[in-house]
Design a protein around this nucleic acid. Structure first.
Length: 813
DNA sequence: ATACATACC
DNA sequence: TACTGGTATGTAT
């Protein structure tokens, strides 16, 4: 075997390549010359170089695996063998041969795509159709639950259909040839029909769709030939293929087997325009499997095949023989899957999995290395993606930026928000930051890109998308009742969107998860009227007090808004304290709030209603501010922030210095910024700080701590402040605000835990506690750390349902 | 949650 | 042959 020969980087591959070509029969050739040609052709082909690099990586994996194998003892193997046999007999017990699964695969689908795009065919009449239509119109007759796997593939469970079919009259099994194919009865009529002016179509979006097909079929007065199909599986499948062909003018192949894995292999057996049936008995299955190359199995790709080959495994029979070894070398999921394959097992029930998990758009181009161009491309992609999202009415919480450089190296960078977003501006606000970070990381060299992509994932469920009227106050009113039940109703709808640019803000009202609710509830604590008077109250008690107060005031909405404003302000103050930045001077503190607009759907933004805002309490000085004008209130907070109690935060960072004007997406300043984005300011306080806020959940303590710690006059600053936790009232032996904040967060979370008792959101609350116990992003300025450490107690992904026919991909442990 | 690799069409 | 664009998922961290 040739892997492992390449240990040095540059020459390794090349010598290996040269070696590879040095096969029997080539001995007499001028080897030096050949090597030179190989070298030359590889030169300039970044793609080829990258392929070699990947190959090398795979070879190293294999090497590692082989050395692992070399260390396996007889004893280990014996134990593994016993284990594996146990598993095998368990799996054997679960074998279900009662289902009849069919895999259909359109033969020339992609050729048809080409044809559609071929200008010569553009003007020819096109029949309507699509997989979804096939779906609807043909597949559903055989299995209403059928699963479309891709544009040209589907799984169907024929079992029920076949039962019914037994008693069907012949008429129900008789199908007509379409008018365009009446001239010939052979299946090969396709070319002929094209000659008649039709081109095969499967696409709903074809420009000249709509007329022909259904018309021609129903108006098939000529009648001509019909075909009667029998009641057996083969006949039923043949009938289905016949109907597909009549409808789409494309042939399909099919596989019939007792499970999905086998059906898929079978559909490949008689590939163009054929079908293959594997009988539903164990012997037939095992026979079929024995000589089946592992590579034929869906999910075993190039890499897996190579790794298995290195272990002298090429057929499924080999798999069965080597399971003990495989169980020692591969991950649990991987070897279990392999074992299923070796036993000819696969999924026997078909799940229609209609929700997409992500949506993305990417583009390949000639080298793009100017940051301004990269950014505007990024924007374009975001716009495209937003459009696509809109078509399916999707909103997601995670945005991933994908970059491939001219050397074909791929990078993905992602952020997740607590709330779902969908517009181009919102997506761009995040993607832009991810991109900028990468540009900065590479500087002073430019990023030399050949591909860029933007993906949206973590979609909110349709239920969650509906904005509900019930407010978080309503949630609190129901006490600690079923949080799960109320979670979805926590959002508020605000009417209007005409906000003074300075005073409004994102609220977390659009957030969807329990975690976010917890987060909000905690924020809610800041609404407390007299926290200094009643500091002994728990967070929830305070929340309840607030609720009562709110009831009295019956001004829920407006208070919600002020809550949001306060909270955000706090978050930003916190951020500033944590991440000192060089920025322009203060302008309007609330403009920080505006920046977050980009990150939440506009319809969720609170409006600055003109109704009275009594009961407003400054989160910094805790004095009451009687105003119904949020601008006034914001100014008040600005003043508080820029003096007095808040100075403690300045020990970490000069708050004032960190105020700056923010370009809000959609504003001129923002647009200009994008357009002229030549230079990137590395330490800008920008949208992604909100991102960080969101990712790290709560950051609400700062305002509090400012107050709580204001026991000492400013002159004592040098000695360090005395920090007393407002929750547990214990003096904290630290000057480090970050540590102190973490402590308070923990305390608060413990409150939440207690309060929630066994409520369903416990898990979430817990995770907050744990998250908080992790040090905050190390350095300020870099602002790079968007990583969130995941709690170790979370169930592993293995717990997720995985269907056996899924891919396994990585085999190594 | 994020990054990356693998897989499939 | 070179190699895209889209989605999903397994593994590692």
């Amino acid at each position: 075997m040739d892997y492992g020969t390449a240990t040095t980087k540059g020459e390794g591959y090349l010598s290996r390549m040269a070696l590879n070509d040095n096969k029997a029969g080539m001995e007499g050739l001028d080897r030096a010359k050949i090597n030179k040609i190989i070298m030359e052709s590889s030169k300039g082909s970044k793609f080829y170089e990258y392929e070699l690099k990947k190959e090398h990586q795979v070879n190293q994996r294999i090497e590692k695996m082989m050395s692992q194998k070399a260390h396996i003892t007889e004893q280990q193997l014996k134990t593994a063998q016993a284990q594996v046999e146990m598993t095998a007999s368990e799996l054997e017990k679960s074998r279900d041969l009662s289902r009849i699964i069919v895999h259909v695969d359109m033969d020339a689908f992609y050729a048809a795509v080409e044809m559609r795009d071929c200008p010569d065919l553009k003007d020819k009449p096109m029949a309507v159709g699509s997989m979804s239509m096939l779906i609807r119109e043909i597949f559903a007759d055989y299995d209403p639950q059928f699963q479309p796997v891709s544009l040209d593939e589907a799984y169907l469970d024929f079992t029920e259909h076949l039962e019914l079919r037994k008693s069907w009259p012949e008429a129900s099994r008789t199908h007509r040839y379409s008018s365009w194919s009446t001239d010939i009865e052979q299946p090969e009529h396709q070319q002929e029909s094209e000659a008649k002016g039709f081109s095969p179509v499967l696409f709903e979006d074809s420009p000249s769709s709509s007329q022909s097909l259904s018309n021609s079929q129903t108006a098939d007065a000529t009648g001509r030939t019909t075909e009667v199909f029998g009641t057996s599986v083969e006949e039923a499948v043949r009938e289905m293929r016949f109907r597909i062909e009549q409808k789409t003018m494309l042939t399909a192949s099919a596989g019939i087997a007792p499970n999905m894995m086998l059906a898929k292999v079978c559909s490949d057996k008689n590939k163009p325009n054929g079908q293959y049936r594997l009988a539903s008995n164990r012997e037939a299955v095992m026979d079929f499997i024995q000589n089946l190359p592992v590579r034929k199995v869906s999910g075993i790709g190039k890499v897996s095949e190579k790794m298995l080959n290195a272990l002298d495994i090429s057929s499924c029979a080999h798999l069965g023989q080597q399971m003990a070894l495989l169980s020692l070398l591969f991950s649990e999921t991987a070897w279990r899957h392999l074992m299923q394959v070796s036993l000819g097992l696969g999924s026997t029930y078909i799940v229609r999995n209609e929700e997409r998990k992500s949506m993305s758009t990417e583009r390949t181009f000639k080298e793009l290395n100017r940051p301004d161009e990269q950014l505007s491309l990024c924007r374009e992609l975001c716009e495209d993606l937003a459009q696509d999202l809109k078509k399916e009415d999707l909103k997601g919480k995670s945005v991933t930026l994908k970059l491939k450089n001219v050397n074909f190296e791929v990078k993905t960078r992602a952020v997740t928000l607590p709330c779902a977003i969908a517009t181009a501006d919102e997506i761009f606000a995040l993607a832009k930051d991810l991109l900028k970070t990468e540009i900065e990381n590479e500087s002073p060299q430019p990023l030399r890109l050949r591909l860029m992509g933007v993906r949206m994932s973590a979609f909110v469920s349709p239920d969650d998308k509906k904005t509900l009227q019930k407010s978080i106050v309503g949630f609190l009113q129901s006490g600690k009742a079923d949080v799960r039940g109320s979670t979805q109703e926590v959002r508020q709808q605000f009417e209007g969107d005409h906000l003074p640019s300075c005073s409004l803000s994102l609220t977390a009202q659009t957030c969807q998860t329990k975690e976010e609710v917890t987060w909000q509830i905690k924020k809610k604590g800041l609404l407390e009227d007299h926290p200094v008077d009643r500091p002994q109250l728990s967070f929830f008690q305070r929340a309840r007090a607030k609720r009562l107060q709110l009831q009295v005031c019956s001004q829920e909405r407006e208070n919600e808004q002020s809550a949001s404003v306060l909270t955000l302000r706090d978050e930003h103050a916190h951020k500033r304290a944590e991440t000192p930045k060089k920025d322009t001077g203060p302008k309007c503190a609330a403009s920080h709030l505006s920046e977050t607009d980009a990150l939440c759907p506009s319809e969720a933004r609170p409006s600055t209603s003109s109704s009275a805002l009594n009961c407003l309490t400054c989160p910094v000085c805790f004095s009451h501010v009687s105003t119904d004008n949020l601008n006034v209130f914001n100014s008040h907070i600005d003043q508080c922030l820029s003096k007095g109690e808040f100075h403690i935060l300045n020990s970490n960072a000069d708050v004032k210095d960190n105020y700056k004007e923010i370009e809000v997406p959609g504003t001129d300043a923002h647009e200009d910024q994008i357009k002229n984005n030549q230079q990137v300011e590395p330490n800008r306080l920008d949208q992604h700080h909100l991102t960080n806020d969101c990712v790290h959940t709560t950051t609400l303590i700062n305002g509090d701590s400012g107050t709580v710690t204001s026991h000492r006059p400013r002159s004592d600053h040098d000695k360090g402040p005395v920090l007393i936790c407002p929750v547990c009232h214990l003096t904290q032996d630290t000057n480090d605000l970050a540590i102190f904040n973490r402590h308070v967060d923990l305390c608060l979370n413990q409150e939440v835990l207690h309060e929630m008792g066994n409520s369903p959101s416990l898990e979430i609350a817990k995770s907050n506690v744990i998250d908080r116990s992790i040090p905050p992003p190390r350095q300020a300025g870099s602002g790079k750390s968007k990583r969130r450490d995941s709690p170790s107690y979370l169930p592993s992904k293995k717990a997720r349902g995985q269907s056996p026919h899924n891919t396994i991909d990585k085999f190594f442990r």
